[in-house]
Design a protein around this nucleic acid. Structure first.
Lengths: 106, 106
DNA sequence: TTATCATATTAGCTTTTACTAATATGTGTG
DNA sequence: CACACATATTAGTAAAAGCTAATATGATAA
């Protein structure tokens, strides 16, 4: 297998490692949504969500499509969807551990 | 599919979203290693690596096995290994985007 | 039982990330 | 054109994460 740049891999994964971003991803997993719809569904702050969308888009995790005054966001491709599903699978294995791990360092 | 707790999922993913932790995981992906071996291979600070190992273990991503004065760490199971592989697959899709995304927010 | 090696923990500090509020841009509509 | 709505950007601040150095624990071996 080809060698992948660790920095880039970590940067990619970082895209998934925040609650708001994960909520956005869950929200558009099956169907594209406008920014307003996303804000509505996850009850977030407009500015905050916009920033997270920029982050996800910058990492190539999601794509945006303009239609009139709306912008529809969706997952980039099926691989991303598979990855999201995989997270859920792995979570079932580790759930009890993660639950009691209260911080990441220290 | 059962509903998963977002907070917990994010916490799990967080385990993968740091360069040092990813280096540790790559390092033990195929074979268990002692802490000293890991420190050696990734040329890290002992305290720092120990903290990251605690984090990975706390999240259930890796497991430790005592043998004499050594502790051998390895991936928890095949699902974790599959997930690591999947990261590489997805990275190939998004590589060019991630490369130019310099921060995660702002 | 003391010395040594392997690993863990703590504390302090720096850097990064996330959030909110305010403001800006951009697009359609009367 | 002016207004309303959708989204983005900026600035400032608060919170979280990561690093290093120092110290502690725990096991083996002399």
């Amino acid at each position: 297998m080809r060698t992948v740049d660790v920095d880039m891999k970590v940067k990619l994964i970082h895209g998934f490692s925040n609650k708001t971003r994960m909520q956005i991803l869950d929200c558009i997993k099956e169907q594209e949504k406008t920014v307003s719809q996303i804000i509505d569904e996850i009850k977030g702050n407009q500015s905050n969500i916009s920033q997270h969308l920029a982050c996800l888009k910058g990492c190539g995790i999601i794509v945006g499509r303009n239609e009139g005054k709306y912008i529809y966001y969706s997952l980039r491709n099926q691989h991303i969807r598979d990855l999201l599903t995989m997270f859920d699978v792995v979570l079932e294995d580790v759930e009890s551990d993660v639950a009691c791990c209260d911080r990441h360092i220290d």
